[in-house]
Amino acid sequence: MIFTSAELDYLSGQQLGRLATVAPDGQVQNNPVGFFVQDGTIVIGGHALGASKKFRNIQRGSTVSFVVDDLASVDPWVARGIEIRGTAVALTDAEPPVPFFSREVIRLAPSKIISWGLDGTRSSRTV
């Protein structure tokens, strides 16, 4: 299993993450995106994802980082989240994970997972 049970539980309870990509000129872009966990990968979609800069950046070979985080409590301060780095592919004719997404999706296969605050410990591992 790529994700721990605590990571899967956390991801299944979240709806938005932030995807960072890099344009060919080196400019970094970071955007909120909808996502799903599917077969050990992260599937990112949207209404017109194929027309987006992040989609084009990935088509051109961008490295990626995907972060999902929140505050479990503010008193006491308890932050939790997960960062997933890996290889992403931009697919142009995929079955969308939900009906209102376009047929363009980004599939992120994790190579490094960093999580914090999910089960009381910090975890960093290469998968």
Rank of each mutant, 00 (worst) to 15 (best):
P110A: 09
P96V: 01
S65P: 01
T41D: 02
G13P: 00
G120N: 05
R107E: 09
D119Y: 04
E83N: 15
R60L: 09
R56G: 07
T41C: 07
R85M: 06
A72M: 05
A88F: 05
S62P: 02
A23T: 15
S12D: 12
G81T: 09
F36T: 02
G26Y: 12
P76M: 07
W77K: 05
R60Y: 05
E95H: 04
F100V: 11
S52E: 14
R107F: 01
G40V: 02
E95P: 01
V78Q: 15
A88H: 11
F100R: 10
S62V: 08
I42E: 03
I113M: 04
R85E: 14
I58M: 05
Q29D: 14
G26D: 08
R125W: 12
A72Y: 10
S73K: 09
R85W: 05
T87S: 02
Q15F: 10
A90T: 07
T92D: 14
S73M: 08
V43R: 07
F36A: 06
F36P: 00
A23P: 03
V37R: 04
A79F: 09
Q29T: 15
N31M: 05
S52A: 09
S111A: 13
R80H: 07
G45W: 01
L91Q: 04
T126F: 08
W116G: 07
T92A: 09
D25W: 12
D93I: 00
F100Q: 10
A88S: 10
I114T: 15
A20Q: 07
V105P: 01
V37F: 00
V37Y: 03
Q29L: 07
